[in-house]
């Protein structure tokens, strides 16, 4: 697995993929989707797909791929190697969603939540397989959100493909287990060798599991909190763990889409009631009540000063 495309710029989303086995372009195939790193406040979320001909499902079972959560890191690495050796009939593709992508998606003006991001990533990967000529007949997915709705959504998008969405799909279907191993291995490797874009000097790599409830992760977050910038891009700013710490320890930053109490904020922003525009004296807001600043200046937010 060559992670260099992601490591050159870990601030964006990146796709990694194996060669498409020729047999997958000829025979009906099944495909599994799983993700790794949904919960942690640190590092990327990785989406993986794995596909093989339906006829080779048995062979996949013999590789003893199992739910990645039940395996140690070493076992996962071994299993990934097995998958790699089976490259003449097993293909995979990964989408690494950088923590920065997650932060900016979830915190943008039009909120893009993690579930929507997950769905779209999964859909993108399935589309990638189709575009690459994989003869998809069956798709197995571990659910994100209500299974029925997700299944309906995917079925509609990919007519002619039999979509099965199940909770715990990674332990039910070997092809999903395989996908989960690919995703988990990629995430582990990326997190371990994270290239910090920021100039932090020697970074303390002892950040634990990256899950919000891990004391090591919490300690690390406290240590690397910058009062102005918050965190390196390695941290998901949209996680409440990160937000709470920034709210209490960092400088307060106001954005113009911060919600405040209607009337109060209107007053503070010197906004005027819509009604005032219909009144007799529509004009500026100067210290001198009789003086109305010309709209050339108010439109350009220009004011006179009396002190520096």
């Amino acid at each position: 697995m060559d992670l260099s495309p992601f490591e050159t710029d870990n601030s964006v989303s990146c796709r990694l993929a194996s060669q498409i086995p020729d047999v997958c372009k000829m025979e009906d195939c099944c495909l599994g989707i799983d993700e790794a790193g949904r919960g942690p406040v640190l590092g990327p979320m990785v989406y993986g797909i794995c596909f093989c001909p339906v006829s080779k499902k048995g062979d996949l079972k013999n590789l003893k791929v199992a739910d990645s959560k039940t395996l140690t890191e070493a076992e996962r690495e071994k299993l990934f190697q097995n998958l790699d050796e089976a490259r003449n009939y097993v293909g995979w593709a990964l989408q690494i969603l950088s923590p920065n992508t997650i932060s900016t998606s979830m915190l943008q003006r039009t909120k893009y939540n993690l579930n929507a991001l997950s769905h779209d990533t999964a859909i993108g990967l399935v589309q990638y397989a189709l575009d690459s000529g994989v003869q998809l007949k069956e798709v197995y997915v571990d659910t994100v959100g209500p299974a029925e709705k997700y299944e309906e959504k995917l079925s509609k998008l990919f007519p002619g493909v039999d979509v099965t969405v199940r909770p715990k799909a990674d332990s039910l279907f070997p092809i999903v287990s395989a996908a989960s191993i690919c995703a988990k291995v990629a995430r582990d490797r990326v997190v371990k060798g994270w290239n910090f874009a920021e100039d932090l000097g020697e970074v303390d790599a002892d950040y634990g599991s990256g899950y919000p409830n891990d004391p090591k992760t919490k300690a690390w977050l406290l240590k690397y909190l910058d009062p102005v910038f918050g965190y390196p891009q390695f941290v998901r700013f949209s996680w409440s763990t990160a937000q709470t710490l920034m709210d209490s320890k960092a400088v307060t930053v106001h954005w113009d889409d911060d919600e405040e109490d209607g009337e109060k904020s209107a007053q503070r922003q010197k906004n005027r009631s819509m009604l005032s525009y219909f009144g007799a004296s529509a004009g500026g807001n100067d210290q001198n009540p009789t003086h109305q600043t010309h709209r050339f200046l108010t439109e350009r937010r220009l004011t006179s000063l009396n002190t520096l």
Binding site: H254, W255, D256, Q269, D286, Q287, N288, H291, L297, R300, R301, L302, T303, S304, L305, N306, T307, L308
Partner: peptide, 29 residues
């Protein structure tokens, strides 16, 4: 300030040869 009759900030260039007015662009956030 001739318009408001209150104090406003101006600038006098070197040697007082030129007068400048000072305006501030300011918006929230």
């Amino acid at each position: 300030n001739p318009s408001t009759d209150a104090a406003s900030l101006y600038m006098l260039g070197s040697g007082d040869v030129q007068l400048y007015e000072v305006k501030a662009f300011g918006e929230d956030f």
